[in-house]
Design a protein around this nucleic acid. Structure first.
Lengths: 349, 349
DNA sequence: ACGGCGACTGCAAGCGTTTCCGGTCCGCGC
DNA sequence: GCGCGGACCGGAAACGCTTGCAGTCGCCGT
């Protein structure tokens, strides 16, 4: 005998009523409801997720796809997602799409990706999906819209689905403008690597913002002031060592594409005997946990909030209203700390 | 008509055969199998996870419970788990049990915990469970063994279930012995906070290992040499500032309970003008990603491997053999880098 | 030529819920 | 007194697979 049947027997009702009572439906009398609840408690009954999903078509589970599992930003977003989901009583299943594997072939052929989209997501284990910083191919988008489940993407506009994205261009301009306002003219940029298809050309946008802000102040950006590096502390450190060791350039400020790179830059500056911000100002992007500790000025992008917001949108859609998909701009904010100061010799000092 | 039925019709076989063919069972002729596969491909058919689970009792999904979602260690373990699980074709659903919420009441009454154990895990959404650094209560353990699903715990012995744990005591001794061998006698310890019930008293064990190693060398541990701090860079930094600023003690070495604390200590030492390792040696525990960058000597505990190993054990158990649950010691290894050196004035210098 | 065996395959009984579609019953308006 | 609507509740049909059991069939050994 099925478990729900036992509960029904104990409570002296039908399984239909047990189901309704336990699901909190309204059409159950208070008396019956509590009898059912008592019976369920007594028998230690818990609804079988699978049977329930099969019958109802809903799983109360959402999938989250991330490209990196060990980078601060993604974890921060994930944290926000998981918190909100848990609050709403949803489970979260985590999918990891490592962009490093299968890099030798075009994205469309990456077998892991194919498998994820063609199988995992279509098995009906999730009600909805959140894709963090994944630039989806046409086919993948089609595949997603075909399964008719809510999808929200964080990190860049994607045609046909609801997305949340940061205006990297403007964020970069805000950062560089801050430096310009402090009187800096020689502003270097530690840019991210652009090899990955995953990131909506984020490094390119940030770089363009840097160039534009400079141009706006009548400064031509020097190619030597642009250094490509890994999105890590070590990456920022190495690039900064090289930058500051290059006799051809004399930056008084560095705009790093991420806080981790910026922290690496601070450490490198210190190791070279340059004091921050007296000799060199440094600014990053992210709002990393460590930025406060290091006194790093940054443009915070509130990743955890991004996660929470994505869930919010998803839950709305699961509740029935599916608005026209579009892109929503994410908030950001300049947080000034001790790593930026007036340019050396600047009248504004 | 159900989807599998359509595939069956197209292939000209029964649904039973389709199911068997797609599940890779052996008793299907090669010809039939490929006919089924073609039909499935043509129809874009994917087995419904729920229906399959309901019918078979298996979900191909495992649950992972972590106490912190934004700490390096847990993420590293999670990464290992997720990789192995993905390789084996399993999904991973993530549960987060924040020990910070509900701290005002005894663990047994923490509603989130109750809910997780009494509901989520019993809904049958997972085939097995991995609990990372969670000290489970008697009731929780009973609840777990009652549902008869494989469980493996990482981080400390737990009665009745299979566990993987680091011998924190020995790890600490190894670290301190390294310092002693370098001639240090004044060895301070940055200990973790013991407020949480979640960690198998890991801070206490590491501290005990420190005391024992000292005692073994005839050194009585000075209470002033013991500082409690957060398990973070900032925690280690602050504690070290205080330690080094205290005129009553003169440590030549610091043994930090985690790499993050150790890195904080290195930064603090540098800010105070003490050079590492000339004036002060520092050693941590973990094998943190950043330890290499900072040149930190540490006892690596290979967290990613811990995750992989846990999955390995789980898969074995899911394959049928359920050995007597026990505890398995995890490997660790001293990795000497630049943060430790001979004690100042030591003959071994 | 025949029993037996092994390799395949099909039938149909579940798996444990949800939910549509009616019923029953009670109170109320007229 | 009677028809009616609403609040509750039950019967039973899905939901979409898996798998035990019972064949069918060709082939081998004798």
């Amino acid at each position: 005998m099925t478990k729900i049947q036992k509960v029904a027997d104990l409570a002296g009702v039908s399984t239909a009523t047990v189901s309704r009572a336990l699901a909190g439906k309204s059409s159950v009398s208070p008396a019956t409801r509590s009898r059912v609840e008592d019976a369920a408690r007594e028998l230690g009954y818990v609804v079988s997720a699978n049977a329930s999903s099969l019958a109802s078509g809903r799983t109360r589970n959402v999938g989250v796809v991330v490209p990196f599992i060990d980078s601060w930003f993604f974890i921060a977003v994930l944290k926000g997602i998981q918190r909100s989901l848990a609050d709403a009583g949803y489970d979260l299943t985590l999918y990891h799409l490592d962009p490093n594997v299968g890099q030798d072939r075009p994205v469309e052929e990456n077998p892991r990706r194919r498998r994820l989209f063609d199988e995992f997501l279509r098995r009906g284990r999730v009600d909805a999906l959140i894709a963090v910083s994944l630039e989806l191919t046409r086919a993948e988008l089609d595949s997603l819209t075909a399964i008719k489940k809510p999808v929200v993407g964080i990190g860049g506009p994607l045609p046909g689905i609801q997305t949340l994205s940061l205006d990297d261009h403007e964020v970069a301009r805000l950062a560089v403008d801050h430096l310009l306002a402090l009187g800096h003219r020689e502003i270097a940029h530690l840019a991210g690597d652009q090899d990955f298809e995953i990131d909506f050309h984020l490094p390119a946008h940030r770089r363009a913002g840097w160039e534009e802000a400079l141009a706006h102040s009548g400064i031509t950006s020097d190619p030597l002031m642009l250094r490509t590096a890994d999105f890590t502390i070590a990456g920022g450190y190495d690039a900064t060592l090289q930058l500051l060791g290059d006799p051809r350039v004399h930056p008084t400020a560095i705009f790093a594409a991420s806080d981790e790179m910026a922290i690496g830059a601070m450490l490198a500056a210190r190791d070279l005997g340059r004091s921050v911000p007296e000799d060199l100002s440094i600014i990053g992007i992210d709002g990393h946990d460590l930025s406060e500790f290091f006194g790093l000025t940054t443009v915070d992008q509130f990743p955890e909030v991004q996660g929470r917001h994505a869930v919010e949108i998803l839950l709305h859609q699961l509740d029935g209203d599916r608005p026209e998909p579009g892109n929503e701009a994410l908030p950001y904010e300049l947080v000034v700390r001790k790593s930026t100061g007036p340019a050396p010799g600047s009248s504004r000092g």
